[in-house]
Amino acid sequence: MRKYYEMMKSQMKIETAYVAWFWAGTFATVVKILILYYFWTAVYENRSSIAEMPLETMLTYAVIAALLGNFHFAGPGNQLAEQIQSGGVAVELLRPYDLINRLVWQSWGGFGMSLVRDMLPMLAVGWIFLGIQFPATGTGAVLFILSTLIGLFLAMYIDLILGVLAFWTVNIFGLRTLKNAILLFFTGSMVPVTMFPGWLQTLSQYMPFQSIVYVPVSIYTGTLAGLDALSAMLVQILWLALMWAVVRVIWSLAVRKVTVFGG
């Protein structure tokens, strides 16, 4: 135990700059959550529910969705695109593992770190100070965790599609920003999809994005429960399977392009 304590201490010293960034990031998240808190409190000033959600539910939704949304911008696709553009992908292809799987698992590692370091402390702060609710039921909590994991998988595979496209387009930056803008909105990390105007809700139902944030967080708040929750998760799984297949197909096309035509 002593050994690990020493290792931790030395690591802390090495990463002083990193520590500064950690606190800066935490500060930014706190600011974001405070803004959400005051904003929604003001919105609910003269009314008890919006889109059939009371203030507490809405706050719970907003904070958890914002925390989950934080994680969607840096994904495995970004790293893949970088490797493709730097030419490192050719070396990676010679290694005895599947590059796509490696990137996905690396992302999970990153998610694990940020879960422990950023999200759970923030959630604790929310529970204690801002009146964020706990999951409505025990089953809800379990389904929330499962649904979050599926949602993250889905986000990673959508990100990977963009990453693979770097084989064909040089300027991936614009596509990324477009994706981020769409994700920010259609995943429901800003407002629940149920608050959208009718036509947007319909549109949203035929897109995979709401499976990433809206579905898990709604399961958390209890808006989606019972059979509704299960069928939403089934849709999540279908989207994930579809995106997985898309990634695999274009990835094998891309690899063939590299190996046959030399990139």
Binding site: V43, R47, I50, A51, A181, F185, M190, V191, P197
Partner: peptide, 14 residues
């Protein structure tokens, strides 16, 4: 635009 849309969506309700 996304953040403006956010404001718009909220103001549709209030």
């Amino acid at each position: 635009f996304t953040s403006i849309f956010f404001v718009k969506v909220v103001f549709d309700q209030i």
